[in-house]
């Protein structure tokens, strides 16, 4: 048994954020809520979603692995209206996931389940020296600046505690500098200077579904994966992206 009702807008955002990196996902559902971890095909990035039970208006579930094609889910959620309620319902007999959208009309979709067995993929527990809390819009703007000069970007914490988004091409260079006085910065928890370099296309995918006022928690170290977390309603989404190393 699995039946869960949530506002369509939040679930759409969760699917949009996930489907930028992976094609299929296995939702591990149980009485506490929905969890899913997946790596992109090249194993450079990982996405982890946690939608606790209290996010839902109604939630009843036993333990199931529900493997779905994210592209199909993304298309259906693309048709959802923000004032609609979405009910997810597992049809074990037909091996389908039903998506029922309700407001003025009742619209029913049903998608085939994939045999994506749970990968038991765990998010590695990495300790980070630095954490930046920044508005998503500001970070996305800095990435756009960096993109003008190269396909990769360095996320740096300077000796004097500034957060720097730096990119260097053959001839050109771009740099966005934030400090504790910047309005877009909610907090800088810094213990040491650090620098890691990342592929820009991945960072853009990771931040694509964000709204400009979303608060990103960016965890940084030197030549370490970047961890980026934000909330979608009560749900939490986490990305890990491996660095590029000189």
């Amino acid at each position: 048994m699995f039946k869960a009702t949530i506002n369509a807008k939040d679930f759409k955002k969760i699917i949009d954020a996930t489907s930028n990196l992976v094609d299929e996902i296995c939702f591990e559902v149980d009485e506490n809520g929905i969890k899913a971890n997946a790596m992109d095909p090249s194993h450079v990035a990982l996405v982890s979603v946690n939608i606790p039970k209290d996010t839902f208006e109604e939630y009843i579930s036993d333990v199931h692995d529900i493997g779905v094609d994210l592209e199909a889910l993304k298309k259906i959620m693309g048709r959802a209206k923000s004032n609609e309620k979405l009910t997810l319902e597992l049809d074990e007999e037909k091996n389908k996931l039903n998506l029922i959208l309700k407001n003025d009309a009742v619209r029913k979709f049903s998608v085939s389940l994939y045999d994506v067995s749970s990968t038991n993929l765990k998010v590695p527990d990495i300790e980070y020296p630095n954490e930046v809390m920044i508005k998503a819009g500001a970070f996305v703007e800095a990435l756009k600046d960096a993109e003008l000069v190269n396909d990769h970007v360095s996320l740096k914490i300077s000796e004097d505690g500034k957060f720097i988004i730096f990119s260097k091409g053959d001839i050109n260079q771009s740099e966005t500098i934030y400090d504790n006085n910047s309005e877009s910065i909610l907090d800088l928890k810094i213990t040491e200077s650090s620098k890691s370099t990342f592929n820009l296309a991945y960072l853009k995918d990771i931040t694509k579904a964000t709204s400009s006022d979303d608060i990103l928690h960016i965890y940084l170290g030197s030549d370490m994966p970047v961890k980026i977390e934000y909330n979608i309603g009560n749900a939490k989404i986490l990305f890990l992206l491996a660095p590029r190393i000189e």
Binding site: H43, A45, L46, P124, I126, T197, A242, R244
Partner: peptide, 11 residues
């Protein structure tokens, strides 16, 4: 040029 590594190195 920096080289992309995979996440496996951190598991």
């Amino acid at each position: 040029k920096p080289k992309q590594i995979t996440l496996e190195a951190f598991f």
